[in-house]
Design a protein around this nucleic acid. Structure first.
Lengths: 186, 186
DNA sequence: CCTTTCATGTAATGGGTTACATGATTCG
DNA sequence: CGAATCATGTAACCCATTACATGAAAGG
């Protein structure tokens, strides 16, 4: 008897995407979630472990106990055929526009209430953050863009290049925007 | 006896920012939260009403009962001097890099698992969304950029121009990125 | 010896969405 | 006469963060 198949949560789909690229332990997923997935999604281990259990109950992943250093048995998870199907279905879904949540812009929106020097400091900080991210994306991108698999549309690296290119472009635009603002703030 | 003054929640600061521009009822704040603030932050009325009560308990806003059409008394809120100070303090705070949460990119990251035509559909949808947002921002921007107050660094409209310019630049970059991806996806 | 890394879990709390609830006025 | 707008609130639920808890091995 298969579990009722509603699409898993966003986090569940993120984990399926990670496991479809390489089977992992929960601990390992938490690390991969920081980098490189953290560029566009994030989760802590405290959220990952219960979600893995939910995915397994739904038949989308299975685990196998392996040797490890923790006090409890170390579990290596892998995607099942049903899990792969769920991932594909989710990717193909109609995407409804998600609400934006940008704390930096929210703060900037009230920048008229503070001293010019405070405002400049705020923008300089934002610029530094965007530039740092830009460099990280560019480094990651140049390390994989040369590999032949990056040309293959059905290979994970192909998708990695697409997302990294997006990161590079938006961060570059953000840095330019900060420079434009610094000019206006005299 | 003033309330203990820890910085309010992000939502609280968003509401202070709205009220600093113009006193409003909770209902009105919910509408303004959709547009134009919805470009970078959002909240429902069910979240706004309790937060207004919290801000009032902290002495950052006050309300005045006015004539209105609802079954309960209609309340118009305004920022107090303490509220204005809290808003300024929050804007000047050290900004720690916030975790990104981009569902569109997360989906794209698993695009290697689906058929090329599905992938193209996904990118076309994303492109349409970004282009629609771009046009909305440009329209809003051109409606205020001409006004003389938009040049005054201590006027709300000045900050509106900054945020809208950022929206235009990032959405433009996103549209170009989608076109770049469509080329690669044949 | 102390810190880091491996490794998995739970509990408390905060933030956010959806749904429930009420009721007058205005417009088609 | 039904739908939309004005107008405020509560309750249930989901998602996410922080903190609590345990314990071995490796390296400085």
């Amino acid at each position: 008897m298969p579990a009722t198949s509603s699409t898993p949560s966003h986090l569940g789909c993120a984990l399926l995407g990670l496991l479809a690229r390489a089977p992992s332990t929960g601990y390992d997923l938490a690390r991969r979630m920081q980098r490189p997935v953290g560029y566009f999604w994030s989760a802590r281990h405290s959220q990952i472990y219960p979600e893995l259990a939910r995915l397994e109950r739904a038949g989308l992943v299975v685990h196998q106990v392996v040797d490890g250093a923790g006090p409890r048995p170390t579990k290596r998870y892998a995607v099942t055929p049903a899990g792969m199907a769920a991932l594909r279905a989710w990717v193909g879904e109609e995407a409804q526009p998600q609400p934006v949540r940008d704390l930096e812009t929210l703060r900037l929106w009230s920048v008229w209430t503070v001293e010019p020097e405070t405002a400049r400091g705020l923008v300089r900080q934002a610029r530094a953050g965007h530039e740092e991210a830009l460099h990280a994306y560019q480094a990651e991108l140049s390390s994989i863009a040369g590999q032949p698999e990056a040309q293959d549309r059905s290979h994970p690296l192909f998708a990695s290049v697409l997302t990294l290119e997006g990161g590079v472009r938006t961060r570059r635009a953000a840095v330019e925007w900060c420079d434009w603002m610094l000019q206006r703030l005299g």
